[in-house]
């Protein structure tokens, strides 16, 4: 199992992309523009999420000197 934080973020991008692909395919099936509109919204959300996530990754790396997800389990969630 991958434990790298940047891999987690990249996999998140792939999942959001899959959701957007489903929206666009559905919009193309019924000849509506709504699917593409929803993809634009997903794109904006992914951009904001990746900006905050990468800033958090930088902060975590400067604080823990590691990108391992298990190294940050201080709260024992």
């Amino acid at each position: 199992m991958r434990r790298n934080l940047i891999f987690v973020l990249m996999s998140l991008e792939v999942m959001l992309n899959a959701a957007g692909l489903a929206f666009v395919v559905a919009g193309s099936r019924w000849h509506q523009a709504d699917g593409q509109v929803m993809f634009v919204f997903i794109l904006a959300m992914a951009a904001a999420e990746v900006a905050v996530g990468l800033a958090l990754v930088l902060q975590i790396y400067h604080r823990f000197k590691s990108l391992d997800v298990d190294a940050i389990s201080e709260m024992r969630g």
């Binding site: 990249m10 991008e13 634009v40 951009a47």
Partner: peptide
């Protein structure tokens, strides 16, 4: 699939901007 606008957005924003952000980090 017949969505050229979204195709251009995907190439420009995803493969252009977000991946460059990843590369910077």
């Amino acid at each position: 699939l017949g969505a050229p606008f979204v195709a251009a957005l995907e190439a420009i924003v995803y493969a252009g901007a977000i991946m460059v952000l990843f590369l910077f980090v």
